[in-house]
Design a protein around this nucleic acid. Structure first.
Length: 721
DNA sequence: GTGGAAGTCGTTTTT
DNA sequence: CGACTTCCAC
């Protein structure tokens, strides 16, 4: 018998109140490092052990597969036994499972497959081309984010009203066509999974009731990241009787750009009047100085439930602020500090380097490589996202469902088999006119006289190839099928011809894919579908392990976004500059600026012991040289918590690095109207107007002695006074 | 129709 | 800088 109550006694008072909150709706506002996961896990254990709930009556929802797995492990750890019949998963994983069980009611075909962002874009590109509108003016990418945004808000084409706005008219039309084609092809995109499930439940209350009866306790992690559909889905599931236990931190909401609504967590207790709301403010992660900095920064955001982290820990080291000469120096400084850390016996994995933009990582990587310090970059391509893997998967998808246009398009001429651009565009044209899928069109077109014999033969042999690959029964092992596909499609020969390192890596990867198919175990709830289909949906939802070995002791490189939920003894936040954090275009928009500030807050609170903030005097960003100024967020940190690190000497620079700061040069990131500036020839003046054309950025300056002048910013060398 | 070479373009964050 | 397109010679 596990004594869960003893375990609960070791928690602090707020945590204990949270874990044992009365059965009903509960909102936990959990600050960074306040033991949020611990509370969630204990609550579940408490429900089972102390309140008599069966694990099967509990649903735990997360955002990533990784955190779902970790949570399950922790719960099992505490309980001391396996909880196979408890659903722990991501929104996407869970709703997908529902759709598989009720595919018919969801208006899907049984072998439906999931479209990733890449496939989605491919389809949209084709649609835009078919519409015969200017592709450069209506890029597929834009349509993609439009459609995804609408789906995240739960909006279908018929829910959107447009007036005379050309842009939304076009977007809506694309949305409409896209939906039709997906339906025809039997594929659904990420956003669609949730939306479909939501709609199906709304349409069939009896099916919804099945789930409502089962899931009496619904626990949601990172609730601040939920979007409209997700929240609405939870509400539907909870109904009148289910209990929502939501955990999150409004100050760590950094995914507004992909539909997350911070209001969901902030207004939760207004939506559910009987909510028990508890704040977790004691921090177990960081030193006093780090917390003070974090609190100072975040307190500048308005409209947030007040929350202040505190610790019984000492103040610790001061936060170190370093102004590097340039990004090279920035990297060199980090290497120096990490070496120091290692010399004192620390681990490489204790160090994390956090940045706003992926592009910033390059220089750091170079420096670490040179210094022979192993590192790991988060957010690279996952295994199943690799081009060569997706090629093989596309064959498998086409075998499973001939109408999968995205798959068809990807591999119809890969490796090249004489079905070139012209044949393809004929095929697309035909499909478009006849409202058929590409495969259906191909079948029809080879029996007609509308194309050349050469094309006819090429297409025909492709169709025969795919047909011949389809296993006679479900008994064929997946790895044999995959091997056969790679062989017969000629992909193996095609990749092996490439003698470069990249090509060899590809061969290695496709072999690894065969390997992973042989190890594949059926997913729960998918028993009724073919093994192949089961594997394919696994591949698209479960991104799989990153290829680089993370188990080694490596310095950790990642964006601020992907750092959420992690912690490190020593943290370097680089590029603490206006224009980077906050990002340039967010400067004048309060909502986005708040999100940028939260991003900064997330970064600071990752640090346990030592925090370095670094900005540069000059830097190249997108091949443009800029002279940034310190981020406003860093200026918000009380100076007594900071120590300015002096510029180091002997830096491999051109030797002309001024230690004494001169006037900052005016650039796009630091200019504002009314700014006093100085020009070498015209003397001093005031900016009265600006103009941003594609080619150059111009400012109009009213000079005391020379009158009004329009100047190109890049050449004028204006200094801020 | 194919493959290489040259040229253009656009750069946030991702389940 | 790299991914993507376009152009050109086979």
């Amino acid at each position: 018998m596990i004594d869960i109550l003893t375990s609960i006694k070791s928690l602090n008072e707020s945590q204990r109140r949270a874990v044992t909150a009365p059965l009903g709706h509960t909102r936990i506002l959990a600050g960074a490092g306040s033991g949020k996961t611990c509370v969630l896990v204990h609550r579940i254990a408490w429900l089972i052990e102390s309140q008599g709930y069966s694990p099967s009556n509990i649903l735990a929802v997360t955002f990533t597969n990784k955190s779902a797995m970790e949570m399950r492990k922790k719960i099992e750890n505490i309980l001391g036994y396996h909880i196979d019949d408890m659903w722990v998963g991501t929104f996407h994983g869970l709703t997908h499972r529902v759709l598989r069980a009720y595919w018919k009611n969801s208006n899907l075909q049984q072998n439906f497959q999931i479209l990733d962002g890449d496939d989605q874009q491919r389809i949209l590109k084709r649609i835009v081309r078919n519409m015969e509108i200017d592709v450069t003016r209506w890029p597929a990418k834009q349509a993609q984010s439009y459609i995804n945004a609408k789906k995240n808000e739960g909006l279908r084409v018929h829910n959107i009203y447009v007036d005379n706005d050309l842009y939304s008219q076009k977007m809506l039309l694309i949305y409409k066509i896209y939906e039709k084609e997906c339906q025809r092809a039997g594929v659904i995109d990420f956003g669609e999974i949730l939306l479909r499930c939501h709609e199906m439940w709304s349409r069939y209350p009896d099916i919804l009731a099945v789930y409502q009866r089962r899931f009496q306790q619904i626990l949601v992690d990172e609730f601040q990241d939920t979007n409209t559909v997700q929240y609405s889905w939870l509400q539907l599931l909870a109904g009148d009787r289910g209990h929502l236990f939501i955990v999150g931190d409004n100050d760590q909401s950094i995914y507004g750009w992909r539909g997350a609504r911070i209001k969901n967590i902030q207004d939760f207790n207004q939506k559910y009047k009987d909510t028990t709301s508890i704040k977790l403010e004691q921090n177990y992660r960081s030193t006093g100085n780090i917390l003070a900095a974090a609190n100072a920064v975040i307190s500048n955001n308005s409209k947030r439930p007040s929350k202040k982290l505190w610790t019984t820990d000492k103040d610790g080291d001061l936060i170190q602020l370093y102004q590097a000469h340039n990004e090279r120096d920035e990297a060199a400084y980090i290497v120096e500090k990490i070496n120091l850390w290692l010399d004192e016996g620390g681990k490489r994995a204790d160090n994390a380097i956090l940045y706003r933009l992926n592009a910033q990582a390059r220089m750091i990587e170079e420096a670490l490589l040179q210094a022979n310090i192993p590192y790991y970059v988060y957010g690279g391509l996952c295994f199943f996202e690799r081009a060569e893997i997706k090629d093989v998967l596309s064959y498998l998808r086409l075998i499973s469902n001939r109408n999968d246009d995205a798959a068809f398009e990807r591999i119809v001429n890969k490796p090249t088999r004489g079905i070139g651009a012209s044949a393809l565009s004929q095929l697309r044209q035909y499909a478009h006119e006849q409202k058929l899928t590409l495969w259906q069109s191909a079948v029809k077109i080879i029996n007609s006289n509308s194309i050349s014999t050469k094309n006819k033969n090429a297409i025909s042999s492709f169709l025969i190839l795919i047909d011949s690959l389809e296993p006679k029964n479900d008994k064929t092992p997946l790895n044999e099928l995959t091997d056969l596909v790679i062989d017969k499609s000629n992909l193996r020969v095609y990749f092996s011809k490439d003698k470069t390192e990249r090509g060899q890596g590809r061969t290695k990867n496709i072999n690894q894919l065969i390997e992973s198919t042989s190890r594949f175990n059926r997913q729960k709830g998918n028993e009724h579908m073919s093994l192949l289909n089961d594997f394919l949906s696994y591949a698209s939802l479960e991104t799989g392990e990153k290829l680089t070995d993370r188990s080694k002791d490596c310095v950790q490189l990642m964006t601020l976004h992907s750092a959420k939920g992690l912690e490190f003894p020593e943290v370097f936040m680089i590029g603490m500059e206006e224009g980077i954090l906050p990002r340039n275009k967010f400067k004048n928009d309060t909502t986005s600026l708040s999100e940028e500030r939260r991003l900064c807050y997330v970064g600071i609170t990752r640090a346990k012991k030592i925090l370095h903030l670094i900005y540069t005097e000059t830097r190249y960003l997108y091949k443009k040289k800029i002279t940034p100024v310190l981020s406003r967020f860093i200026k918000e940190i009380p100076t007594e918590r900071l120590r300015k690190v002096c510029a180091r000497k002997n830096i491999a620079d051109n030797g002309n690095t001024p230690i004494v700061k001169s006037f900052t040069t005016l650039n796009e990131t630091n200019l504002k109207s009314g700014q006093q500036v100085h020009h070498p020839k015209f003397g001093s003046g005031i900016i009265v107007d600006t103009e941003d054309s594609k080619k150059s950025f111009r400012v109009k300056v009213n000079f005391k002695n020379a009158g009004n002048k329009w100047l190109v910013l890049d050449y004028a060398k204006l200094k801020i006074i």
